[in-house]
Design a protein around this nucleic acid. Structure first.
Lengths: 352, 352
DNA sequence: ATTAGCACTCATTTGAGAGGAGTGCTAACA
DNA sequence: TGTTAGCACTCCTCTCAAATGAGTGCTAAT
């Protein structure tokens, strides 16, 4: 099965020279966005090979699927497979540049929302790509405090504070009035039973137990308990902040009307972005930075894009995801470096 | 000063025939987006005039600034002034079409946010333009209820409920512990003093009075009072929901890269949209629907657009603004009709 | 194994020419 | 005096062919 013949297409491994050439093709294409020809490579590398030799090697690389030709008599551009190899094995993070640009200042904000908007914006400005940031998820956070209070005869306000000072509100409508005493008891009951638990630990069993303990007034009270439980579990529609969407116009391969329109729409609807970020989030790798090249991303409208995602942490178990969307020929080195920088920056900003 | 000579340019009023011709030019241009020529008008109208006559009239209209020629040997297109006249005096709302499309269903939602997103989306789908909806403003609403509660030793949660069930939260940090009793007193004090007042009625005088009444514990307590006051007044960054931004690609005059990019950016940043909607909001005219044509809009990136805005009301004095952005040759009749429809729909949905 | 040389391919640019829509003006008409 | 037919003119747009040039694949020589 294994092909010993060097001329045969299905080479198992790339020899050193081919790697260098592939790397040169990609580097060059990342910079210029133009198909790169054999002559360019011949001069660009330190291999001291003539363009003809390069041409032979490039023909091999094409056969192996690492690069491709938009048309005869054009240079080569990297294929998804080529990019993948580059990202996996040839990338050198540009720490210098990133440091130099570390004036990328994110300030600690009272309101989470402002912070995340700022992160999205700063990243977009620095990278010149489109960015998105998901708000931290609270499912695995602990319940800190619950408070029911009467707003008027038929309305009860439920405030739920979650670790990390995330607050959920809900106004519950009750048909029958509830005495101050009942309300107080209910408050205590809710806090003692549920306080300190993770959001996703709260289950039907506990609710049943609480209802039993509340006893007598079952009708109204149990209604309220149900409502509170629902309010707690209510999956808040994954909040996502975007910035620099219009950066896609910088890259001709994304800027034509149809593609741009689809992308813009994806960024406005946000729902698909949510799924993508969620995927990264669930993938577990905590410090991991993930790269989706072209079709690898589950989002249709991004088939000509690459997406680099990273998780961040704000202390107190508040974790969220960041994504950067650009053309496939994005500057992976820089983007990864930038994401690393912001990760540590956020980490330091909130370690207390 | 007044020119009696009919040949002179600065006509004071348009005679009936000119109006009809102008209207025909605009109608036609709205439909086709192509410059319209004299021959077309000659057939299109019931005036029974030859194209030559129409040409003369059109030359006059051009001289008066109602229409213009993209270049010699092209037909005419409406100028901003022309559109303005049309919108002010010649428009016929398309109630039929709007009714037919009244399946434009907006459902009552628990969360305001969902409702407004839905409104934006439905409008965008129906009109095929870009839409924006601002959340109702609470400045002039009354304070319904304030509740302070201790989250832990150094943190106090302030919940503020405003008429219309808008809720604001704030976590206040206190250096020194506060007794349950103090907290209770403070709650009562805040509610009796501020309850029922409009947000923008609350002033420094009241705060001073409260501090005095709170007496003794002045240090911590007055800090908390300040914080609460600030939380109440904190201008929430005018929330705006957009939809159908990518509709701009339907209109070639907006779809070129530079313009599209600017527009997209404006819609993403939202801040300028806020100013625009605010302007409408402040202009007072409550049922009023306002039209900004081209340069009339204060937003630079919309110089080739028209914007139609309307205020809506959700009951309980909750008022906000809706905006629809399209090309200057937008279907004003339909847009205005649609906005009217949604106004009444929202009104009915929330009258209780 | 490498390279020089050459024929060939094919996207892109350029310019000329044809076509056509629409105008402005003039002169004739009712 | 207002309206109209007729005509020359303008200028955008489309098409087509030719020129350009970047880059290739193949062959033969080193």
């Amino acid at each position: 099965m294994s092909a010993n013949n060097r001329r045969e297409g299905a080479e198992v491994e790339l020899d050193e020279r081919k790697k260098k050439i592939l790397q040169a093709v990609i580097r060059n294409y990342l910079e210029t966005g133009e198909p790169v020809g054999s002559r360019t490579i011949s001069k660009f590398t330190d291999l001291n090979l003539s363009s003809a030799t390069i041409r032979n090697e490039m023909a091999d690389l094409e056969e192996m699927g690492y690069i491709l030709q938009p048309h005869t008599s054009a240079g080569r551009i990297p294929s998804d497979k080529g990019y993948r190899l580059y990202v996996d094995t040839m990338m050198e993070e540009k720490t210098r540049e990133v440091v130099e640009m570390k004036e990328m200042l994110v300030e600690r904000q009272d309101k989470m929302e402002l912070l995340l908007k700022q992160v999205a914006k700063v990243l977009a400005q620095n990278t010149q790509y489109a960015t998105m940031v998901s708000a931290p998820q609270t499912k695995r956070n602990k319940l800190k405090f619950i408070q029911l209070s009467r707003v008027d005869v038929h309305q009860i306000l439920a405030v739920i504070v979650i670790e990390g000072n995330v607050i959920k509100n809900n106004i519950l409508r009750v048909d029958e009035e509830m005495s101050d005493e009942t309300l107080l008891k209910l408050n205590i009951l809710l806090n003692t039973t549920l306080g300190g638990l993770c959001i996703d630990e709260i289950n039907l069993g506990m609710i049943a137990v609480m209802k039993q303990q509340a006893g007598l007034h079952s009708d109204i009270v149990s209604g309220v308990i149900d409502a509170v439980a629902e309010a707690i579990r209510a999956e808040e529609a994954l909040e996502i902040y975007t910035s620099g969407t219009n950066n896609i116009f910088r890259y001709p391969e994304l800027a034509d009307q149809e593609k741009a329109s689809e992308l813009i729409n994806t960024f406005e609807e946000k729902q698909q972005l949510g799924e993508l970020l969620q995927e990264t989030f669930n993938s577990g790798e905590s410090t991991g930075i993930q790269v989706y090249i072209g079709e690898e991303s589950p989002v249709q409208s991004m088939r000509d894009c690459s997406v680099v995602t990273a998780t961040y942490e704000l202390g107190g178990g508040m974790k969220g995801t960041i994504g950067i969307v650009g053309p496939k020929r994005m500057d992976y080195d820089k983007v990864v470096g930038t994401l690393r920088t912001i990760q540590t920056q956020l980490d330091e900003l909130y370690k207390d």
